[in-house]
Amino acid sequence: MAFESFYAQFSRKAIRQGDIALCEFHQLRAAGGEPTGPGLDTAANEDLPYLGPHRDYPLVVTRPESATEISRVLRVWTGLAMVIHQNCELDYADPNDSRVIVAPLVSQAMWPQGPWDLIAKNGLPSYFYLPPLTEDEAQDIGLEAAWPESAVAFASTTLLSRGIVKRARVLALSASGVGKLQELLVRFSSVRGWGSHPELERLAGYTIVSAHATGETVAGPAPLAKVVLERDGEPEEITVAWGVRRTGRPLAGPTAN
């Protein structure tokens, strides 16, 4: 992937979708009973990305209706995060709305046990692959160091204030990079995985409740349809791509959601 068409310098004027900031991001947690992750490097595995070092800040939250005090923990990381807030929402938000949605970045170096062979092909719906840059390439777009092979962790999305993000930006996606980001965001919110034929066969016996076109297509192009299934009162939903490959083999099996 040619980096020139993927990265760009960020706009000085306004925050845009695809901007990458070096700042804090967080998770509000219960004071006890939570799994240890995400956070500790020892907790990271193939399914749980390591987002870098963090710090926990105990909080006491008072519920306004009852004055009840609740203990919470704010886990804060410092690292890179990408703005995934839609540009339209950024432009037309109320002037007093300071919120912006970001998703942290993980690097292959920080998270070596991650499934990078799949991530590099954008093969996992919850990651958006970011190609590496050499030091020279990075300097051409204003970065102070080489950019490692990395990815946006959609499942770790959180909310920051514009004031934090705007001043901390270091890089941005190009227009085509943003297009890819948007495509994968849609996929992240609608696709759990690409099913195999054995999984399709597992659905034998389900009743089709409804089917409707999504308006989306996958490479082919093949239109996508949502099919709602039901068996013994348990609903299931799959997305079916209606297309035929050049090989003559079916394009894809179902995606469960």
Binding site: N45, S107, M110, W111, P112, G123, G193, G195
Partner: peptide
């Protein structure tokens, strides 16, 4: 960001993503 963590457990043998990727 480009540096490895202090500790990185070895990848689990036989691990496969829970979602089918195709």
């Amino acid at each position: 960001f480009a540096a490895p963590p202090a500790r990185a457990p070895q990848p689990r043998a036989g691990w496969r993503p829970r979602e089918a990727t195709g």
